[in-house]
Amino acid sequence: MLLTIDWLLIIEKLVLIVVVVLVALGIAMYSTWAERKVAAVMQDRKGPTRAGPFGLLQPVADGIKLFFKEEIIPNTSNKFLFVLGPMLAMMTAMLTSAVIPWGNKIELFGRTIDLQIADVNIGILFIFGVVSLGVYGIMIGGWASNNKFSLMAAIRGASQMISYELAMGIAIIALMFITGTLSLKGIVEQQMNHTWNIIYQPIGFLVFFVCALAECNRTPFDLPEAENELNFGYHQEYSSMKLGFYLFAEYINMFISGVVMATLFFGGYDLPFLNEATLSPNIAALIGVLALFGKAIFFVLVFMWIRWTIPRFRYDQLMNLGWKGLLPLALVNMLVTAAVVLWLNK
């Protein structure tokens, strides 16, 4: 009775969603391990070594620990919103992966499968929109905890995210002048045929990178969760897996922003000096997926490297950098890009 639905397509997409979610969770798990290892080697330590070889089972142990910890919901908190907070944080973190082209087409069981959950023609704006919703997880969680520190952190987080979204959006607009499309797939295909966008937009990339750090609440912009001044900020009252969700969401956000940076500026699943046409499509797609993951993981490692190098900004410095530094820089970048594009097209 319901229209003729291509059930195979739905199954295909569902499988893809499950795979992407599982991979993102796995990467987030091992990001915690990588974070501890990176911190350790930069401080002349060894990091986790006990659970499994090189401490590789440490994230599993941490996960089990978090699941079995007691769930505490504060008496005076707003119960529903208190539970909703981590859910929102996790959901917005996962949603962005829907429009990312993970690789080229592969052929399986006689079907051509697109390694992208949804190729919407506003892909980059979709990511931008979901990221802008990410602040609700922090705000609702922080407010529902009914705790001064959490509220402070929630407010800091909200104002920080709004401030840095502007510069990020303008950096994206400058990029759009060059690509002429909002579809992530289109952007990647364009970069495969020409050069990577980083050549045309180095300043745009710089602005985007700094804003991505701020959007992920990573040091030096980790004011919402400032350990030593706000007692871990918005997730102070959280325990057990609800806390785990917040931490997971942060790492997934990091991974996704690494993927987005790779897609927008570094050719996505494109591997230079490799002619995909000479390989069978499946192998080429696999190499592409691996290339994308390699680039994304590189960015995640750079995020960690930065975290263990620089201290946190003061709040006024943060706002100064956002509004007086990055925003004008992004605007100038946008105007110059627009002028050059107009001049070249003439």
Binding site: G129, M139, W143, I155, A158, I162
Partner: peptide
């Protein structure tokens, strides 16, 4: 949803 309502909530 992303900007104005955040300010309201704020």
């Amino acid at each position: 949803a992303g900007a104005i309502m955040v300010l309201f909530l704020f």
